[in-house]
Each structure stands twice: as C-alpha cells, then as structure tokens.
C-alpha cells in the first residue's frame, strides 16, 4: 500500500485554499500510518470543527467529524470503549486550545492512548481570520486589527506540563521530521501530542505581510530552531530572539496511560 491508498480519491481535490498547510500534514500523517502498517478497519480518525478538522473526512477509514472543541472527548470514548482501535485526532489551534482547552489538559492528564495532531495556523481559518489563543503578539487578524496585544499559548509546553507521554513540534516545511515524529508518537503508549505550525495563506499570511504561500513557509523555515540549540544558547548567555519558535521533540516518557491495547 502507499499513502495514496488511505485517501478517499473520490473526495479529492479537497476544499483547502491553494497552499494551505493542512494538506501537507495529512500527507505526513498518512505516510506515518502507512509505514506503521496499521489496518484500515482498526484505525479511526476523529476531529472537531475548523478547516484542519475537515481532514478526517478525506481518509478511507471510519472517522468522526464532531462538534467544535470536542474531538478529544469523542476520541476518549472511542478509545476507552475499544482499546484495540488506533485513534488519531486532527484538530486546529482554536478547536484544541480555545473552546476545547479544558478537554486538552484533561486528556493529557489522563494520558489516554491517542495521537493528537494539532495543525496550528495561529488563526481561526474557517470563520474568516479571528485571533486564536496562539496568535502571536503583534499579529493582525480580524479581531486584533491593531496587532494582538496578548501573549500566546505554547501548546507543546502546555501538553508537557499537563502530562502527555510524547510531545513534539515541527512545521509543515519539515515534512520528513514531522512524519518521523508522528510515527514515533503513534508507537508511544499514552497521549502523543504533535504540534505542526502550518501556513494559512488566506487568513493569516495575507494580513501579515506574507502574501505568497512560499513567503510564509520560508518564514517558518527561518524562524524556527531546535529546542536543544535554543537551550544551549540560553545557557551560554546568548540572547534568543523572541520570534524564534522552538521545534523538535519536547518529551518522551512513560507515565501510566489509559486505554492502551491489551
């Protein structure tokens, strides 16, 4: 099989805008699933509401496209009622961190054996570009017309603090590393959280001086650095620019997990 066989070919091309990073993240996820050799009938994709959450509908396996923010409670139900299933959650930053924020920290605390893939485009894409809890300070959106004045959530650090067993962050530019991290997360028992910074050219890039899709991806490439490297810079007393995003693996540990296959 190849990753293409996991797509519902009759539903392609998908509705995403030209250059939307969500499509890349679906590719990487399906390549990881394909490499692991999971079976279609044993795999379930669950998602909430948002552009990112439409991903589950393009995949041949059974999937649940649930209500806004509630992907994790639905996924918890699926996994605990049948621990033999592989459950993967697709979610957006608004879906996971705003309306679904509480579900997120409690799913991490319970450490349920899910793989949660968050496509963090730092904006509410589907509803027209309102600011989300991860919109960086100073960024323009329809609800922050003078630039966001709030600090943004660091979702990966939040997941580490709340107790997830595996946490990693990559971007939709780092396709190989992202695929490897998703595979590692899927193999780890307990909650695996993979945050991917993605581009939303329509609602984020267009408002924030990143007019071309490639500009936004180049920006991600130039404004990310490995976590370990940033730590080393801090230790040696160097100043780390505030707009650099830490990428890489954040944690891999063995806390007691729920819903692990018997």
């Amino acid at each position: 099989m190849s990753y293409q066989d996991w797509f519902r070919q009759d539903r392609l091309p998908h509705i995403y805008c030209s250059g939307c990073g969500n499509g890349t993240v679906i590719n990487c996820t399906l390549m990881a699933v394909d490499e692991l050799g999971w079976k279609e009938e044993e795999t379930v994709f669950v998602s909430g509401i948002g552009c990112s959450s439409r991903a589950s509908g393009y995949i041949v396996t059974d999937s649940l496209h649930t209500t806004h923010g509630r992907a994790l409670p639905f996924a918890t139900g699926v996994k605990l009622s049948n621990p033999d299933l592989n459950v993967v959650v697709f979610t957006g930053d608004g879906d996971l961190a705003a309306i679904g924020g509480n579900h997120f920290i409690h799913a991490c605390r319970r450490n349920i054996d899910l793989t949660v893939i968050c496509m963090n485009n730092q904006i509410y894409g589907m509803t027209g570009g309102q600011g989300s809890p991860t919109t960086p300070a100073g960024a323009l959106s329809t609800t922050t017309p003078y630039g966001s004045s709030e600090p943004a959530f660091d979702l990966s650090e939040l997941a580490v603090a709340a107790g997830a067993n595996f946490v990693a962050r990559w971007t939709s530019y780092h396709v190989k590393e992202l695929t490897r991290a998703i595979g590692a997360g899927m193999r780890t028992p307990g909650l695996s959280f993979i945050e991917t910074m993605t581009q939303c050219p329509t609602n984020y890039g267009r408002r924030n001086k990143l007019r071309q899709v490639t500009d936004q991806v180049e920006f991600m490439k130039n404004h990310t650095a490995l976590r370990q490297k940033l730590d080393r810079m801090r230790e040696s007393g160097q100043k780390v620019p505030t707009d650099i995003i830490a990428i890489g693996e954040f944690v891999r540990r063995d806390r007691p997990a729920m819903g692990v296959r018997r």
Binding site: Q4, P13, Y16, T24, N27, C28, M31
Partner: peptide
C-alpha cells in the same frame, strides 16, 4: 520524495 510530501493537494506522483 520531498515534493510529494509537501504538495498540499496530492498533485505530484
């Protein structure tokens, strides 16, 4: 395979 992986529209094969 980088182009195939990054293409958001599954257009390259």
């Amino acid at each position: 395979g980088l182009c195939v992986m990054i293409c958001p529209d599954q257009a390259i094969r």
